[in-house]
Nucleic acid binder design. Structure first.
Lengths: 246, 246
DNA sequence: GGTATATAGTGTACTTAGAACACTAAGTAG
DNA sequence: CTACTTAGTGTTCTAAGTACACTATATACC
């Protein structure tokens, strides 16, 4: 009777340890908790937006945060990120890459929990009209007005923005933000939004034609109060490096 | 008596779980093991070399591998990497940055163990004449002749080499491979080794002077059977981005 | 001491890419 | 049918990259 109480106490101890994501092993070794957070970007209304949820639980309950979660057993971090993309943004087969692993010790009040951060790009058209309305209420927010965020997520977003700004200059990832076909103006706007600076129209077109990344379709965008614009598409919708850019 | 056996059994179970680096939690959540591996490069005998150890334990006992280890409690992954650098290469305060987190499920036969990989650059002069001679026998090996390596370490090294080749083109990290003062020829050789291609001497000098990264010292390198070479030093020995390069 | 040898050090012409810049074209709105 | 809005197009100038060959100054060796 006394002994079985002891067992009960032990089990409680174990569950506490696990809740804290820290199972102490012999001599200093232990496993930190491992989460995945995803910075999901899209362009809407001529601004770069990122998907944020309101945290349903402590810590930071109610505070906006990147969608994320713990790695499941048998899952790679990429698979975790894709699961989060499907669950929170309702999309799959979008551009995604690992960003950085954040693990400064004070980043999570629950203890030593690392975050393998990913960043993803989604064309606006792939997203439903308005995302889920659970308590988490995921929504796309302009990266210009980010208030207080949970954990170190502001830092993660800053890092993601830097990566995005760099990569758009030497890869073709712009394809992953644009619809299947698009006008030259839309394409240029995408670059201007991400780079945060206007670009000369003629130089931009010259450069892009030289890069040979896109081709004309036979269609034009009509119905606007202006000369119809030719529609283009990317020749390849796979990530690749370019020689250089601007 | 019977009950205390039960406790014993429980404790064994726990230790097995921990040894496998997997503590199963409620519903799919669990903590993978977290290790840090470090790709430590230096230049010696006009080749790029990387530090490898022979694994002292299973799995892959006896096979060459990157120096690495589990994160200790309270340690960030960067601190782990720095500890490994000190223990295995005997250096500190060298260039180090996080590379990538490798976590494909089959990478470690012990189960789900992720590796936060770092890469470090060490000038040859900072390393002792010959490194430790424990069973691990750390030694610098030319990146040209890498045999079978433990885990996915070949992949990690390939990734590190790509990063190094990229970064030497748009940052000043070359400073972290060179001694305090050096000749223009040594500097150029460093670039040629990392890029794997010869560079025109006049263009290289022109470019480097234009970049304004280095300055003359008052010294010359004499004692060689040739015209003495001026010695230069880097103006700043801190990582910074350049506009562009070659 | 003189000669061979090895690496240090320097300048110019050509080619390519980037930057600056303004007008005409073709639709819809009213 | 006129006003308005965005689409579409070339040229000049400047900066950077590339290709290329000879002279300078030390030590090694005879």
């Amino acid at each position: 009777m006394y002994n079985s109480h002891k067992i009960g106490a032990l089990i409680i101890l174990i569950s506490i340890t696990i809740t804290h994501m820290q199972s102490s092993k012999k001599e200093g070794y232990f496993n930190p908790g491992v989460t995945v957070d995803v910075a999901i970007f899209t362009i809407e209304d001529n601004t770069l937006k990122i998907l944020l949820i309101k945290r349903a639980n402590e810590p930071f309950k109610g505070t906006p945060a990147l969608p994320g979660g713990f790695i499941h057993k048998g899952e790679s971090s990429l698979e975790t990120a894709e699961r989060i993309l499907a669950d929170k943004a309702g999309v799959k087969n979008v551009y995604i890459e690992q960003l950085y692993t954040f693990d400064e010790s004070e980043r999570d009040p629950r203890g030593q929990i690392i975050s393998i951060a990913y960043f993803a790009l989604v064309p606006r058209e792939k997203l439903g009209i308005h995302e889920g309305s659970r308590t988490e209420n995921p929504e796309f927010v302009s990266v210009e007005n980010l208030d207080k965020l949970a954990f170190d997520h502001k830092k993660i977003i800053a890092y993601a923005l830097k990566r995005l700004g760099d990569k758009i200059l030497y890869t073709n990832i712009a394809y992953s933000l644009l619809p299947q076909s698009f006008t030259f103006s839309q394409l240029q706007k995408t670059y201007e939004i991400i780079l945060g600076a206007p670009i000369d129209k003629r130089n931009f077109r010259k450069k892009f034609i030289q890069l040979d990344m896109i081709e004309e379709t036979n269609e034009k965008l009509t119905g606007k109060r202006q000369r119809p614009a030719k529609l283009y598409r990317f020749k390849k919708k796979m990530p690749e490096k370019l020689k250089r850019f601007f």
